[in-house]
Design a protein around this nucleic acid. Sequence first.
DNA 1: TTGTAAGCGTTATCAC
DNA 2: GTGATAACGCTTACAA
Lengths: 328, 328
Amino acid sequence: MARLKDIAQASQVSIRTVNRAIKGNGYVDSAVRQRVLHLAKTLGYVPNRTARSLSSGKNMDVVALLWGVDELNMAKLAGLEDPLRSREYQLNCLFGAPEYDAAQERILEELTKRRPAGVAIFSDRYHPERDRAIFRSMLAANIPYITVDSHVEGVDSVRIDRSQGVCDAVLHLAASGRQRIAYWGPQEDSTRLVGYLRAMRQLGRPPLCLMFDPESDMSLWRAQGREIAQMSPLPDAIQAYSDTTAFALLAGLYAEGIRVPQQIAVVGFDDRPMAALAWPPLTTVAQPCRAAGAAAAEILLRKIAGEPAPTQGWSQTLPTRLVIRESA
Amino acid sequence: MARLKDIAQASQVSIRTVNRAIKGNGYVDSAVRQRVLHLAKTLGYVPNRTARSLSSGKNMDVVALLWGVDELNMAKLAGLEDPLRSREYQLNCLFGAPEYDAAQERILEELTKRRPAGVAIFSDRYHPERDRAIFRSMLAANIPYITVDSHVEGVDSVRIDRSQGVCDAVLHLAASGRQRIAYWGPQEDSTRLVGYLRAMRQLGRPPLCLMFDPESDMSLWRAQGREIAQMSPLPDAIQAYSDTTAFALLAGLYAEGIRVPQQIAVVGFDDRPMAALAWPPLTTVAQPCRAAGAAAAEILLRKIAGEPAPTQGWSQTLPTRLVIRESA
DNA sequence: TTGTAAGCGTTATCAC
DNA sequence: GTGATAACGCTTACAA
């Protein structure tokens, strides 16, 4: 717990000189610098972050705003943390209460209390209005922010190119000889559907879209999987919305005795760890979670540093990766 | 950004009085208090955490030390955050690099830099030596700590009663009429095995333990699932080590044409979200993740407050919950 | 190249 | 009940 003062006394120079030597700011005689640095090390000097922040007026905390308790978010969070830490920032987490509709107020109150250098918002596509309200408040409060994977218009975000990912997967299905390739997802999310439609257009085939209610849950998904199994003619490939829904689909298909991939190929989306353990191992489109987190951190750091926005804006879009296993 | 000073000027009293009125510490004339509090509100006063920390000498940060990027850890993290936030603590995350063997040094360096009020360690049963080294350092540095779900001896931890969870599940299998109930897991982790053995003893039946190498991965698990499918006589129920391994087991069984639960019942462990989407939906033992996180936070807060350890020690053990679906 | 001294916004010790 | 005033450990004009 040695302080600058202690080193100053021990090395017979002023605090200011010790500070310069340690921060590497101004001019310091090299002999003096040596001595000071050596003493700092032997005395075990560790700068006091709190004092630094108070004095410099800079808070070195970045808040990550999270709703979903999800392994993908966890990977993004880990990706975010690394660049922040290496620039001396701390990442602190704030979990929104999903059941609490007025989360916006509580979150904003918490953010004004913390006065972070920046905020990374882990978006949740099921609550665009809430997200928009939070972005507005960030802008109003002039807090640098970045969102991870938000598709709300006009918001700075690290996006994942879901359209391209699905397009690639569908083209892979076609290349494997699949003829009747269907898309199965919720109606309101369009990014993946767009990729599917693009691929089908490219292939010169008519799209076959099977949609479900966004409010539906796993038991309904499975039931719909059974319905799909009874379609005639049967699709011979299905691009599912996510690994989760793909699992439900597989279950529904098995319940009807359909064999995957012999009768129907199935492709998921996300590449959750469990995807490799499905039966058959699920071919899926992998999200670059860690990379997305890291990219978000880099952008946020530049916004914090006050850099002007690039001409194309702060947002970035990252590519996905098709992971071919056995289901397609 | 109003400061104590601003309120003092506006309300014609000293800073000290404003401070007393706001913190509710000493005696303040109630009329004065009213006036001060009102002004604080209208001026939008928000206490400066940094200044508070520097002056009081108390850092209000708690570090969560994480290795695994896992949804269970994420849920535990969320559980941890809530009680901390409501007591004005901030939760900041530090991810250990799994590939970096000397993580211990880097982590310790980072912790001395941050000087947190306490540390919550998210254990990783695959690296007991590393964990032990970190615990030792926490003790040496006198940083209050709690581990979430560590089974290292002599370490304060919020534990999850895996033995009891597995025991319950096995008794459920027996109650459902299963005769030849096997346990399938890695050799080195004993907590679940202990529960299985206890249940079998209680049932007066000979145990049937199928073990695998802890270093084995999913493809080997699936292969072993196929071997199990060829056993004669076939077990009619298997308690798997985890949901993950249970998925691989299901895949292996299917590959050999075994029907679940008709021929073999399968029980998992963890109740990951995907468990409900397995085919058939996986009966499993649910870990109380959020509760474990919350309990860890409460213990940590008491250690930070300097409370003496309870006679039974700080560690707590939380019960699991059997989630019955269709696989058993 | 080095030193002095005034902050940063709180808390906390005394006197009054 | 209240008010000066000195910390807390660092940064940063401004001098020297």
